[in-house]
């Protein structure tokens, strides 16, 4: 379908975009890559009066390294992350997750900031950011603040970002030696939203796991950190007993709702299957 009418403004700097957001409030939507927003406009699931295009604002795109963090500008596309040597070195999990996001043409346009702001629990970046303990840089006219990914996602499509704020960057803590990582998801067809997916991080020393972090895609109203399963695996050799305990802990960690094809029970089962596969791959 075609979107209902709206007006469009291309912001040339961040202050202008923030001022427009302040003025138009809930009547305005920020347009970044547009790969979700324009689809929802087409289906008339939303009908803003204004689209504020932030894609030409300088400085919001690109991947850089600071003393403490890998910094990914909010307008960095999925494709740029997929191909980034810095990401491959400092946050390989993101490079592993990127190919699962939709299709090439959509990865060319869609942005990480847009994905975080939209906060779809079935999307890849939010769960990765939760697992990586990333933080988001959020800008308002009144100033800048940083929020942990682990507290940013509050409910279904509900986040800590206020309507007058813009996410400008994603900051991922640098590690002296990056942990091993595995990203896996189950989908009916390549590029579809995942039924369920997992982002696993950890170190392996003589068969024992440490610094384990597990983020789940599509297993609740928000991206979830599977803290029970993390505790079950931490410091352990992942033998059959330990894996069974970790999988059992997912019962408390996850809270999936059913969809057209999969009941909550099916998703719980698949989440446990994925965990075992991911741990085995991490150890391999």
């Amino acid at each position: 379908m075609k979107p209902s009418p709206f007006d469009y403004v291309r912001a040339t700097n961040l202050t202008e975009a923030l001022a427009l957001l302040e003025r138009h409030g809930e009547q305005a939507q920020i347009l970044a890559g547009g790969q979700t927003l324009i689809a929802t406009l087409n289906m008339r699931l939303s009908a803003p009066d204004w689209l504020i295009d932030i894609t030409r604002i300088p400085g919001l795109s690109g991947i850089t390294l600071t003393e403490t963090h890998l910094v990914i500008g909010a307008l960095t596309t999925h494709r740029e992350i997929e191909r980034s040597a810095l990401v491959a070195q400092y946050a390989p999990l993101l490079g592993q997750a990127a190919p699962h996001i939709a299709h090439a043409a959509i990865r060319n346009s869609g942005t990480i900031g847009g994905s975080i702001a939209f906060a779809d629990p079935a999307a890849e970046w939010p769960a990765c950011c939760v697992a990586l303990d990333a933080r988001f840089v959020i800008q308002a006219l009144s100033g800048e603040r940083r929020v942990s990914a682990r507290t940013f996602f509050r409910g279904l499509y509900d986040t800590d970002r206020a309507a007058h704020e813009i996410i400008t960057a994603i900051e991922i803590p640098r590690e002296r030696a990056p942990r091993r990582s595995v990203f896996m998801e189950l989908a009916r067809r390549h590029g579809d939203y995942a039924i369920v997916g997992v982002a696993l991080l950890g170190r392996v020393d003589q068969g024992r796991l440490s610094d384990v972090a597990i983020g789940y895609v599509g297993a609740g109203a928000t991206p979830l950190l599977a803290q029970g399963a993390m505790a079950a695996l931490e410091g352990q050799a992942a033998d059959a007993d330990v894996l069974a305990r970790a999988k059992a802990a997912l019962a408390q960690d996850l809270d999936p709702s059913g969809d057209l094809y999969n009941s909550p029970a099916t998703k719980r089962h698949l989440a446990a299957v994925l965990l075992e596969r991911a741990v085995k791959q991490l150890l391999a």
């Binding site: 469009y8 291309r10 347009l31 547009g34 790969q35 324009i38 494709r79 959509i106 060319n108 346009s109």
Partner: peptide
């Protein structure tokens, strides 16, 4: 130079 979905991009964005 990059492929995109013509239905997920507005003409004004292509200015």
């Amino acid at each position: 130079g990059r492929i995109v979905r013509g239905c997920l991009m507005l003409a004004v964005q292509a200015a």
